[in-house]
Structures are given as structure tokens and as C-alpha cells.
Simulated assay, not measured.
Amino acid sequence: MNRYKLTAILSLIALLAVSFAVFKSPDDRFISYITEAKNIQFFYKSQNGQNFGSIQNLKTSIESQKKKLLFATNGGMYKKDRSPQGLFIQDGKIVTRIDTATASGNFYLKPNGVFFISGNNEAQIQTTANFHFSNKIKFATQSGPMLVINGEIHPEFKKGSTNLNIRNGVGILPNVEVIFAISKKEVNFYDFAEYFKDLGCKNALYLDGFVSRMYVPEKNWVQTDGDFGVIIGVVE
């Protein structure tokens, strides 16, 4: 075999390897939804001052306005009275202030962080320590722990951990679109964080655990129950 044929064969093998890496089947342990930041809204209380609570209540409210709910998921942890735990900003107004305390629980597994959308529809995820309030922020929710920090998995997560649970979270893709994901079954923190990292997310944030629900009718994933604080949604 001459060197020209050998070079061609090696080039073909390299091309096939790259193609496999790019087009490999998606991780079917998770349901995800990708959207532009400009489409995202945060919901908390209805016009009568009551928490929406469930995705179904939000869906009913949206449909009463002759609109359609395309996506929804719970948007962070909450207290016993269903008020948001940590920072929550809605339509530019601070509803609850940032929590920088040290305590036990997932929320305080530092670094925790803030997912927010600016007035010019730019989505960001920052650690709580690096977050600086701006009156240009339209929506924000604080939660924890961070899943991915500057391209690296949270240092406290252990591969093969038996700490399994349903989990949902949010990440920023390399093209600056936002990806929300929920595990179909119980997973550990490491595997959940690795899912976002493998998609190229430099930063990703955990939203909540076993109480989590997600509504993605385009993927036949319809969970409309729940009793939440904040709900994140996309409306058409």
C-alpha cells in the first residue's frame, strides 16, 4: 500500500471518529429543553396574589389569556410558605434578597449560584460570590449547588456516588442558548453535572431535587403537578 492510499484511509478513519463524536446518540437519562433567553419568563404569583404552585395552574392561567405554554419547570428552592429561598427578581423587582449564609443542605453546598436574565435578554449563571446586583436584571433565581463552574464539575461531587435523586437544572450552551434538563430517574450530582459539561456548558446550576417537574409537550414529557415557589416557563 502506497503512502497516498494510507493517508487517505487514515483521514477517513479520523473523519468517522469525529462524526461519531458529534452525532452520537443523546443521553436518554434526561429530558431537556433549549430556548433563547428572550423567550424565558419567571412566574410566582397570579393576579389574585396566590402562588401558581403547580404547572397545571400556570398552564390554565396562560390558556385563559389565549396563549400557549410551551415549557415549564420549577425554578429553584423554596421555604415552607412557598416563598423563594434566596434571591428572586421578577420583572426587575427584588422579591426576596440574596442569601449568602453558610448552612447545611443542597442550597448551601458552595459554590451555589444565581441564574439570571438581563434587560437585553442575555442569560447568565454566576456563583453567588461573584454575583453583583444590577437594576438591569429582569429575572433572577438563586439556588445551589452550582453543577458546572467555569467548565469544571463542582469539586464536591463524587463519581459513582450513591446519593441518587431526581434532579433538574439549567445551563448556558456555547451558543448562549439556555438549556433546562431533568433526570427521568434518580441520578447522582456528578452524572447530572457531567451531562451539562458534555454539552459544552461552562456554567450550570442545580434547581431542585425530588419535587422537580418539567413540562415539555413537544417531547411527550408532560408533568403538570407540583407545589412550587418560582416556575420558569416559555409562552407562545
Rank of each mutant, 00 (worst) to 15 (best):
residue 108 Y to V: 00
residue 19 S to M: 05
residue 94 I to L: 03
residue 146 M to L: 04
residue 44 Y to E: 04
residue 97 R to K: 13
residue 56 Q to Y: 12
residue 195 Y to G: 01
residue 191 D to Y: 09
residue 132 H to D: 07
residue 191 D to W: 07
residue 80 K to W: 08
residue 135 N to K: 12
residue 106 N to M: 03
residue 27 D to S: 07
residue 118 S to V: 00
residue 189 F to D: 04
residue 81 D to P: 13
residue 206 Y to I: 00
residue 213 R to I: 00
residue 122 E to V: 13
residue 109 L to E: 09
residue 110 K to S: 12
residue 126 Q to F: 04
residue 1 M to I: 08
residue 100 T to D: 06
residue 205 L to W: 02
residue 181 A to Y: 08
residue 11 S to Y: 11
residue 35 T to A: 05
residue 216 V to Y: 10
residue 149 I to A: 03
residue 142 Q to Y: 06
residue 124 Q to Y: 13
residue 44 Y to S: 07
residue 234 V to T: 10
residue 178 V to L: 05
residue 3 R to K: 05
residue 131 F to K: 00
residue 233 G to M: 01
residue 199 L to Y: 09
residue 197 K to Y: 01
residue 36 E to R: 12
residue 133 F to L: 15
residue 232 I to M: 11
residue 169 G to T: 05
residue 29 R to E: 03
residue 230 V to G: 08
residue 221 W to G: 05
residue 228 F to S: 09
residue 141 T to A: 02
residue 76 G to D: 10
residue 234 V to I: 13
residue 147 L to M: 12
residue 172 I to V: 14
residue 68 K to A: 09
residue 1 M to Y: 04
residue 209 G to H: 10
residue 121 N to D: 15
residue 137 I to Y: 12
residue 76 G to T: 06
residue 131 F to H: 00
residue 232 I to Q: 08
residue 17 A to P: 04
residue 23 F to P: 13
residue 203 N to G: 04
residue 173 L to Q: 03
residue 153 I to C: 07
residue 164 L to T: 10
residue 31 I to Y: 06
residue 36 E to I: 07
residue 188 N to P: 04
residue 197 K to G: 03
residue 141 T to E: 04
residue 180 F to V: 11
residue 172 I to W: 08
residue 53 G to T: 06
residue 219 K to I: 01
residue 8 A to H: 08
residue 41 Q to K: 10
residue 207 L to C: 10
residue 121 N to V: 04
residue 70 L to S: 12
residue 110 K to D: 11
residue 211 V to A: 12
residue 28 D to I: 07
residue 156 E to I: 02
residue 30 F to K: 09
residue 162 T to G: 09
residue 8 A to P: 08
residue 44 Y to H: 10
residue 13 I to P: 06
residue 26 P to D: 14
residue 72 A to K: 01
residue 80 K to P: 05
residue 79 K to M: 07
residue 7 T to H: 05
residue 91 D to W: 05
residue 207 L to S: 07
residue 207 L to N: 07
residue 9 I to H: 09
residue 170 V to C: 07
residue 91 D to P: 04
residue 109 L to I: 13
residue 204 A to V: 06
residue 108 Y to C: 00
residue 44 Y to A: 06
residue 3 R to E: 15
residue 182 I to Q: 14
residue 85 Q to E: 15
residue 95 V to Q: 11
residue 103 A to K: 08
residue 81 D to I: 09
residue 89 I to G: 09
residue 188 N to K: 00
residue 17 A to N: 15
residue 33 Y to W: 01
residue 177 E to H: 13
residue 234 V to G: 04
residue 132 H to I: 10
residue 18 V to S: 14
residue 163 N to S: 13
